[in-house]
Design a protein around this nucleic acid. Sequence first.
DNA 1: ACAGTTTCCCGTAAATGC
DNA 2: TGCATTTACGGGAAACTG
Lengths: 424, 424
Amino acid sequence: EKQPCMSTHPQKPLVIKTGVQFTTKVRLLVILPAIDYHLKVKTTLDKDLPPGRVSRQFFIVTNTTKVMDIEDYTNGCLSVDFRHALREKKYGNSTKNNESLLSVTEELHSLSFEAHFTIQGLNIDLETCSLPLVIISNVSQMPGAWASVMWYNLLNDEPKNLTFFSGLPRATWSQLSEVLGWQFSTNSSQGLNKEQLNMLGEKLLGQHFSDSDQVYWSKFCKENIRGKPFSFWIWLDSILELIRKHLLPVWNENYIMGFVSKEMERALLREKESGTFLLRFSESHLGGITFTWVQHSDNGEATFNSVEPYTKSRLNALHFPDIIRDYKVISDGVVPKNPLKFLYPDIPKDEPFGRLYNNLPSKAYPYIPSTLIPCSEMRSNVSPPSPPRESLEPPMTPGEFDMLNKTLCFDMDVVSLDGSNTRM
Amino acid sequence: EKQPCMSTHPQKPLVIKTGVQFTTKVRLLVILPAIDYHLKVKTTLDKDLPPGRVSRQFFIVTNTTKVMDIEDYTNGCLSVDFRHALREKKYGNSTKNNESLLSVTEELHSLSFEAHFTIQGLNIDLETCSLPLVIISNVSQMPGAWASVMWYNLLNDEPKNLTFFSGLPRATWSQLSEVLGWQFSTNSSQGLNKEQLNMLGEKLLGQHFSDSDQVYWSKFCKENIRGKPFSFWIWLDSILELIRKHLLPVWNENYIMGFVSKEMERALLREKESGTFLLRFSESHLGGITFTWVQHSDNGEATFNSVEPYTKSRLNALHFPDIIRDYKVISDGVVPKNPLKFLYPDIPKDEPFGRLYNNLPSKAYPYIPSTLIPCSEMRSNVSPPSPPRESLEPPMTPGEFDMLNKTLCFDMDVVSLDGSNTRM
DNA sequence: ACAGTTTCCCGTAAATGC
DNA sequence: TGCATTTACGGGAAACTG
């Protein structure tokens, strides 16, 4: 009958950063006979925390009680909006219960809301409780925290299971791939298509896998990818952030193939005209995008070149579509040329990207305008080595991706008063 | 006998930002006969503030009292270090005393330190007080606040004059120019030479001025430069910041002439070989640096080109010496060329700048390395207009600048216990 | 020494106040 | 409405702490 809902502002729902305000809303869904309408709601953090269960303890620094009010004129229901902030309790003698191997982003907390009133001599206690929360102290912990929220809500059906991450959670690929797609479709207007998801699945499960194969939480988020200093999710989330901050229009227009193995990439480009390129996320660096183009020599041999991936620091200085427009390859003593001609499969690049270019401003009058041109120097005699082995797989049609309309809405109407009606 | 000293960490002394910790130190300079050594010092903000004098009121959020301790083993004197933070008092009924036209960075505050003890039945009260402080709420107010601190300490001789900025302060050019030089020599190892100071003087006082001419505070800091949306100090401080963050080695090596009028610049370059350039700060944009080079056509006519100034956003992406190394001018269908050959007066550019170049890393193996090249496109048929009139002044020798060894040290040993021994 | 975690605080953006 | 000032908080780095 009462529903809390929670959202941190630009942040992710159910992740709370200490010292940063977040809002909660509690609604009384049944319309009660007009008592005195002075229904005071009290917020408590980790109300019934099982002793020794969390290694850190927090408290609410803001007002914890507030009186409910009539929500609006259409429905007469009572509600109250809180604006809270948390802070860690620091004990002199640090008795941190670090009994577990859990990291702070796997530690689940909860907010409880209580109200008491008397009606016709009857004492009534209302209580409701939020979905599990992850509490962090720095935005750098956000990716890990969000992974926890995703997995909890993907896999947990029980009313409230704060020890969820002690239980070695695992998800089937069919469950997980759906959630991964949501991460893209909720951050942009473009989800992931079958081929892209397939590439991600291979990264986690190896070459041949089925929908029912299981991915362990630790494989997803805790263990580093073989030979890399980051886990699968940290890598994927860095790409989500890159899209959000620097590639949104390009991604939304579906010009980024993004998740393609290098083998597939070569197979796709091999038969295409010289100067055909595609855009792909870096697998070796966090939050990087590169383009690969094909060049056929006179004897018909194909060469593939990929630029050093562009990361946020470069993209802060340069608009990505402009990079595609302006990119030049310099060979000694020759006029620099842009090797990028056709977006895979065969679209002249100005056609898709033209609308997205920033006009070069020739403003600052007394001065000569100046731009940054992304350049690669290539010695004419040194050609980059081609890969030793190539798997030839059928080309995919990146023309249209599936649009996934589902959205994760953890932040709305999540928990019912009696705790039984948990839904997402 | 007691001395407070104050420094905010990366910030400027005597400027305090709300919510940011700052440290103070109080020393008892006379060694007292061992009482009980329990000398408690209490800090108070704006202790005797004349009613209605400040428009904002603040309080100390941290502990205000602490016991003095023996400083170290060499001298047995007592001292105490505080770590304070301030916050603004907000009244429901905002009775801000904005009687004055003063901005918040002109509002002066002070910290008082008190201690009481009894010796042989005699009550002794010690009290000392800091130099005037400027309290800000955002770093964006730092330039204005620092200007106030500079001017107060430059001009005020009275013990403590918290109404200093109500008195239309003015400084002679000889006083002011010295302080301006200090701003550079304390932020780098290079002050300002006579020619540079002269250019700054002309900006404030017009073409012909003398050392005894007076600059008003409002002209220095409050009124915008004619035709520009910023004041003289805001402009100059933006350059100090540019040097600190992006140009330190280049500035320290004295390769930046910096403050030269455009007329002077042309006069200097006119007789030099084609490709001779000098570095100058932008007068039209905040925190910008540009280079101007001379090009002589076959008939001997000189052309001067200045590149659009580089500001922090560009310099975040590109190392300034690399810009000089890599800068290219593109004319249609011709191999791009770097027009920068000799640093004024005639030094081949790689000689001074060579040591400062960043090596181009050809790291990321499977990828083709890529750099950003700063480029200007120049149509061969359009030549930039030459200035209508040029004053021909004698070239200056930028080879060596005077090094000013003086440092402003507001943050040390500033106020004596009885308030009479104020020195800088 | 070190990794996980928190604190610190600048600098931009948004909100607020006047 | 516009300008001056404060608040908010992301993000990088330093400090902390087992």
